[in-house]
Every structure is written in structure tokens, then in C-alpha cells.
Amino acid sequence: MAASPLSLNAVRDADLIASGHRVFEIEQAELDRVGNRLGAEFAAACRLILGARGRVVATGMGKSGHIARKIAATLASTGTPAFYVHPGEAGHGDLGMITEDDVVLALSYSGESDEVLMLLPVLKRQGNPLISMTGKPQSSLARAADVHLDVNVANEACPLALAPTSSTTASLAMGDALAVALLDARGFTADDFARSHPAGSLGRRLLLHITDVMHSGEDLPSVREDASLSEALLEMSRKRLGMTAIVDAQGRLAGLFTDGDLRRALDTDLDVRTVGIAQVMTRNPRTIGADQLAVEAARLLETHQINGLIVVDAGNRPVGALNIHDLLRAKVV
């Protein structure tokens, strides 16, 4: 039967906030309890997965299925190939997705889920190592497993003790613990993570290099050190980056002139039509190498409160330029 709508005046904000606080308090206490039980079985589960030639196949029904799906996704993104198989669908053909080289991670808080237990004879016959995650160490699933991970909780956060709350949180945390322990054991790095997340903001931040976002060749604003200010302004106008590099006779970077430098020059008595660029340029400007990451350019701009950078080679010769708008377009910042 659908719940009757409540009058908003009948519910106090303080009561709603208090209910939320109770959930956090209960679940934090249960997470501490489950975490304190980590021991040899957890290490054995990690070793089973590390020694497998195949993937981790996570499975579970209902809320446990949702948690299993998330654990599989976390494992896959942190260096442990994994996927989720619905136990109901597995009994109707999807078992063919599981090879003899795979490790099966089965979740069921009761340890008695019929759909999961139905798979055990086939998995045992095929020789798949089985890791179970239950809240009942004496359950059928726990006893059938090669390794059992105990996620038993004393209290659900649901006041009726009906909706899985603390128990699903504990299972999720156990899955995260597995993923991170395996990540550490494999020496998985931030670059490895980025390669599996190329479309995400973290992937862009970790994979994009300066060469991917800089303006180079004909698009690089540059004038000689003996140029006039008016020539530099014309170059800035053509290249539309709000700055230009100033180079010496050998092509090395001698300075930088920006929109900000122009505003400061206009506050003086200088004649912008006749003054040389060398008189008003910024000497020894901040630069960056082409082989560095784009995120390092973003950090430099933020730290020094500047809007653009000249990219130089090992001989301090300008090879590119970029500004904050280039990083924004690349979604690095």
C-alpha cells in the first residue's frame, strides 16, 4: 500500500537531521566492527585474485547484486579485470561468460540466496576459485567458498531492521578494501588509472601534455628583441593569445609581453608608437617544457596568478604558447 502524503508542517527539520545523524553513527560503528575483523581470510582472498590468470566475476541478487556490480566496476578501474554477472541470467546461458581461469566473488548477506547457490555446482565442476562475502559465516555459501569474507553487522541503520543499510555499506567497503589492497600489490599508478579513464576529467588531467594544448608554428606569437611596441601589439592582435614571446638574435627567449604589461605601459609617459618592446617587456618570465603535463601548466598559472605561458625547449627557445582558455577548452581546469 502506498504511503500517505504527510503534511510538511508535521515534520520538523531537526527530526529529519537527527535521523540522518543516527544512520551515520550506526554505519560508522558497524564499519569499524567489520574492519577490525580483517585478517588472514582477507589476505587469502587477495592472493587468490592476484594468482588468477583470468578475471574476477562478481555476482549477487537484489541489493547484494547492486553492490557486486559496483565492486566489479571498482576492481576493473584499479587494475584488476572484473565484470558482473547476474545470477538469474547466469542460469540461463550467461555462465558461458565465466571461464575456468576466473575467480568468482559471490555476495549474499544471508548466504542462502537460491539464485547464487544454484551456480555453485557448475562453478565447482569447472574449478573456479570461489570467494564469498556474507554476514553469516555458517551459511551455505560461506561454507562452500574457498575463502569467506565476513561482513556481519550487529545493527542495520534502518530502524525497522528490514532495509539493508549497514550490511550493504559494509559489503561495499569490503569491496573497496579488496580493490585498494590489490591496487597496492600490483603497483598500480595514477597513469594506469588515467589510461582506463581517458574520457573522464582525471584522465584528461593525467594524460594531456603541453604539446596537446599549446599553439605552435605559425600560431606562436613571437617578435625580435629589437622590435617596437607597436610591432609587438600587431603580433598579439594577429595571434590572439593576449601575449607575445620576445626572442634575442639567437632565437632564445628574452622576455614576454602581455595584455597586463600593456596596461601598465599605458599608465606611464611612454610613447607606444616609438618605444621598443625591450623597454616594457617582462624579463625572465615563467615558462614550461613541452613534455610536461597540461595540469602542471594549470598549477603554474594558478600559483603565480598569470594567464599565459611560453613553452620552451632545452635551449630556452620558444616552441609554443598557451593560456588559461586553452586549458579550459581541454577541460584540464
Rank of each mutant, 00 (worst) to 15 (best):
S201H: 09
A181N: 13
S196K: 13
A161I: 11
M118L: 15
G127A: 10
P121I: 12
R186W: 11
F188V: 14
M97K: 12
V122I: 13
L120Y: 11
V153G: 09
L141F: 09
L141P: 02
G187K: 12
Y109H: 14
S196V: 15
I131K: 00
R125V: 04
M174G: 00
S171N: 01
D114N: 07
V147L: 03
E112L: 01
S108P: 01
D102M: 02
D146R: 08
I98T: 01
C158F: 02
V147N: 01
A144F: 11
L182N: 02
S113T: 15
T169N: 02
V151S: 04
V153K: 02
D176V: 05
A173N: 02
P159N: 06
A177G: 07
S167C: 09
R186S: 06
A194C: 02
A154N: 14
T189Q: 08
V116W: 07
A177D: 12
M118D: 14
V147T: 09
G135E: 09
V153D: 05
A185Q: 05
A173F: 06
V103P: 00
Q126Y: 13
S196Y: 15
T165C: 10
H148S: 03
G200M: 10
S139H: 05
I131F: 00
D191S: 07
E156F: 09
L182V: 07
L130E: 04
S171K: 06
T189C: 10
S132Y: 09
D101E: 11
S171Y: 06
S113R: 10
M174W: 01
N152E: 15
S140Y: 09
L105A: 01
D102K: 05
P159E: 04
R186Q: 11
I98S: 01
D146P: 00
D114A: 15
A177P: 04
G200T: 02
S167W: 15
L178T: 02
G187Y: 14
L130K: 09
S139I: 12
L182G: 03
G96R: 09
L95A: 15
A181H: 07
L178N: 07
V147Y: 07
A154L: 15
L120K: 13
G96F: 08
G200H: 11
V180G: 09
G127T: 11
D150C: 07
P198V: 10
K124M: 05
L123T: 05
E156D: 03
G127V: 15
